[in-house]
Nucleic acid binder design. Sequence first.
DNA 1: TGACGCTTTAC
DNA 2: TAAAGCGTC
Length: 437
Amino acid sequence: MAAPQIIWFRQDLRLRDQAALLAAAAAGPVLPLFVLDESRIVRAAGGASRWWLHHSLAALDASLRALGGGLLLLRGPAAELIPKLVADTGADAVHAIRLSEPWWPLIEREIPRLQLHEGNSLVPAGLLRTKAGDRFRVFTPFWRAMQGWGPPPRPLPAPARLTFAPLPAGDRLVDWSLLPRAPDWSGGFSGWQPGEAGAQRRLADFLDKAGDYGERRNYPGEEATSRLSPHLHFGEISPADAWHAVEPQKGSAPWLRQLAWRDFALETLEQYPKSASRPHRPEFAHMPWTDVSSGEGRALLRAWQRGRTGYPLVDAGMRQLWASGWMHNRVRMVAASFLVKHLMIDWREGERWFWDTLLDADLANNAMGWQWVTGSGVDSAPYYRIFSPEGQAEKFDAQAYIRHWVPEFGRSDYPAPLVEHRLARERALAAHAALKG
DNA sequence: TGACGCTTTAC
DNA sequence: TAAAGCGTC
């Protein structure tokens, strides 16, 4: 029998538009593999993401079983397990889709016969260049260059049949304990369907509405967004696939532009890997952030996390996040701005909370979003941009959204505001001004 | 309310 | 190659 071709699934848990899978299948019998790597160099998935991962892996395994095979599950350092698997099986190659998180190259250099394929972005990161030949650091010129480059490749069909190599013994998914037990807080996740079929269903639901996205996307009470973010993070649908489905819709340009932000976040992360863990602009290292290790600062952070700041739009968003694993993007900006500007808490505290609670938690997007709000990023909002939570609620008709997530708003048991908006605003502006002085 | 990346223009 | 202007965040 021909030597096995390992297809190493990572954040590309799909059969459609899966270049690594197709390359493997063209070369020989495939050995589908997923490794749960929680070693020190990797940023392990947060709580909500682990729930998603469990169901997504179950769905992928079921799809592979339907084709007569299955998914090999291994837990441990990929840099050790995969070389051993290659040796044990005599595999001819390890196929994977290239990713942008900074730990992957460290792992990949240990893996023999690795073949990387594109497919996690619309345009391969690093390909587009300025006229001077540099990589882009600002979104708008990057977006213009993307448009000049043309559409991404047409999605490749899922293989109709596959020849599988014998599957070595591996782990059972249930033994990974990715799902919450006592207490099971995943009840609010029931609106989601992890896996490739769920991703395609979301996409189909969105197509009718894609033309209204530009006008309605900022209204948190409306179902105007695609909600594809967790599916895109886990690669259950490729960005190119989503692009080609949405692009023919009239008025789809604003959504395509937002999809391009995902590419831009990957481009930024590859250029500045440390921007995921520290402010890009060095002066922000000297910001007098609130001490959250104990006392009042800790209580402020906790109030923000649990949606008890006394600002109803912030609280509605934080409760939506806690309950459902997702928050409307407009509200993400307001809630994040509140943490950083009003409470003057280091954005990394917020980033860590989002990482743990978001089903779509993604290193590149999360870090870029937080740095953008803070004003500390490569390409970010001006420091004096301080959202007024009440002004934003008014502007984007958030009353129904607030009533839904904060039913006690207006009653006596709703908390008083943690800080007064005008005072907080003045304090944040003064702190930023002092940074420059 | 400023800062700055990128392109264009001028040399 | 440097400076200026544009446009975005």
